[in-house]
Nucleic acid binder design. Structure first.
Lengths: 303, 303
DNA sequence: CGATCTTACGGGATTCGTAAACATA
DNA sequence: TATGTTTACGAATCCCGTAAGATCG
């Protein structure tokens, strides 16, 4: 004996209307079909739910006790299903994202803001952690999407999109290099530099670029946070080399920045997810926006 | 697009087992059929619920959020349906009963006790009120069954069973009438009587019996409650005429009682219900027991 | 290659709507 | 008699199980 939500809904509706005919109209059902459904429900429960004669329909005592309980269950179900359908539209829900801190403080807030202009009901949970932890959180499915720098060699993770984060040189306003369209390693090699912590991917790229150019960087200062580095530039300790994704937030009147012409040493950025896992619609939708906003690297799209 | 409890149950089961094949076995379903059901559910919700490859099945984030909610709804539903099926068996539930006070304090408790020996989980709500109120409560469906004395002339009420409550004479032990098998109006007419309140049906019957016999009752005392009347008998104020249904409770060593041979004036007792209304199974079952225990009057069974 | 999910298809059950029968005020 | 519920029945749909196909480890 099998219950059917349609039967329950039919029961509630007849109970509300007190009439098979009117309830049938409300349910887009012929009245005989409704009668049969109610009979099936009564058979299934083993209880008569309505006392019906040709003039009136009224709930049995058991039916009267049952109606509110089933009504609540049905409305709960409808609520859950409704919420889920909302989530399915992708215009509601939570996007869970793990990002490199440098990326999180750069262009990402703008992209999120733009996304939320279109989908105001979407909220974000952002974990700004180091690249290895980004990968870990993504693998464990504690986040839907990850943005990492550098290479990826985990079969459990899948690259959705690649982009490059070109390096920029930040120097005080009025600096002699401010007139150039871009600067080269050779341009800045003679200057004292504000470098990032040797543990960071940015520093690794800078070192590689200098090595490739056969030059030795002159360390004017080292910082762990990019905002600190910017402060040191402002204080005159040297010029900094920072990723383009962080430029917007550090753009100030007293500073200028120029593209470092060392494209080969741009930071490789990858948007990743757990491979073989379906993204929630919101996150899927946000991933599409990221892929549209971030210029695709000419590299392959596969891990 | 229609939801089906079977689909929900299938979803929960697959989520629990993490495998279509094993879940199908648990659901007594072939595995392809289960796949189709899950697909239908996913289509209906517009959301992918499982990430499945040939080696493993795991919940999507949305599926993971949905599973406990739907699980709770399903278990609520199962609980309600289970309870209802219990009620349908008639071995559980509440019997709501309105009874004449004189009847309620007499044989009814014994019948209820016997019923509960068979159906220990059944509880009773008993309203012991005057006959007109019994009819009213029954008509308003505040009780399932009513036990009234006298005639019934309400088309909304239906007589399930009729029985008679013969009158008994209660007198002190050692009284000279104690040797008789039964007593007549003529036997007691010379004695002072403990009569019930003129508003009671018992008194009406006694008065009618004396009238028919062409005798005049000698009022030794009047009481509203039968227990009071019995006390007055014990105190020697006279002999009482009380309905047989109340004899058991007032049977004492110091008193005796004998049937009053005035059968035509026995109190007519009717078991009634609201006509056209189905009784809850418990009450139906209890009504059957009453009809078995109370000897049927030779009268008609219809109103 | 083996285990598992997916697709395809035919048989059986279920459900619907129309129409006729039935019941009560 | 009029209104509204129940029964009957043919058509369409849905669901299941078997069998074959596809996929990943």
């Amino acid at each position: 004996m099998n219950l059917d939500v349609r039967q329950l809904r039919a029961f509630i509706t007849v109970a509300q209307f007190g009439s098979f005919t009117r309830a049938a109209g409300c349910l887009n059902l012929s009245q005989p079909a409704l009668t049969v459904q109610i009979q099936k429900l009564e058979d299934g429960l083993g209880v008569r739910l309505f006392d019906r004669n040709t003039r009136s329909v009224s709930l049995t005592r058991i039916g009267r006790e049952l109606a509110p309980q089933l009504g609540r269950i049905l409305s709960d179900l409808d609520a859950v299903v409704g919420d889920t359908r909302q989530l399915a539209q992708g215009q509601q829900g939570v996007v869970r994202l793990a990002v490199l801190p440098s990326y999180a403080s750069g262009i990402l807030p703008e992209i999120i803001a733009a996304f939320r202009r279109t989908n105001p009901q979407v909220s974000f949970v952002i974990r700004d952690v180091i690249a290895s932890r980004v990968a870990e959180l993504t693998r464990q499915e504690q986040v839907d999407l990850g943005i990492i720098g550098g290479a990826l060699s985990d079969p459990d993770l899948e690259v959705l999109h690649r982009t490059q984060d070109h390096m920029h040189v930040v120097f005080p306003d009025g600096h002699k290099l401010g007139n150039l369209d871009f600067v080269t390693i050779d341009d800045i090699a003679p200057l004292p530099l504000v470098l990032m912590d040797p543990a960071t991917s940015v520093r690794a790229i800078v070192d590689a670029a200098f090595l490739a150019a056969g030059r030795q960087p002159i360390v004017g200062a080292e910082a762990t946070y990019m905002s600190t580095a910017v402060g040191m530039v402002r204080a005159g300790l040297g010029v900094a080399i920072l990723p383009g994704s962080a430029m917007e937030v550090h753009a100030e009147q007293t500073l200028r920045s120029r593209l470092l012409n060392a494209a080969n040493f741009a930071r490789q950025i990858a948007l990743i997810k757990r491979s073989g896992r379906t993204l929630p619609p919101v996150s899927e939708s946000f991933a599409l926006m990221l892929m549209k906003e971030l210029p695709a690297a000419q590299g392959v799209d596969t891990a």
